[in-house]
């Protein structure tokens, strides 16, 4: 038996923390996905070319 009784506040915070963790993982996925798409489809080539032209 747990020494500390779980309060409603703990339950709320656990679900909130889980949702924030999920959001952060999604953000990492989005940034990674966008980077992969941009690199593989030549999305960064225009930037590199314009910088080389300076």
């Amino acid at each position: 038996m747990s020494l500390v009784r779980e309060h409603d506040l703990h339950k709320k915070r656990r679900s909130r923390n889980a949702a924030v963790a999920l959001l952060l993982v999604s953000l990492i996925g989005i940034v990674l996905g966008l980077t992969l798409v941009k690199v593989t489809s030549g999305g960064f080539e225009a930037v590199v070319t314009s910088q080389e032209g300076r």
Binding site: V4, R5, E6, H7, D8, L9, H10, K12, R13, S15, R16, A19, V20
Partner: peptide, 15 residues
């Protein structure tokens, strides 16, 4: 400590 205080703290929002 919230575990010692049975009252719910107002303003503690859910996701």
């Amino acid at each position: 400590d919230a575990s010692l205080n049975p009252q719910t703290i107002s303003g503690d929002a859910e996701f």
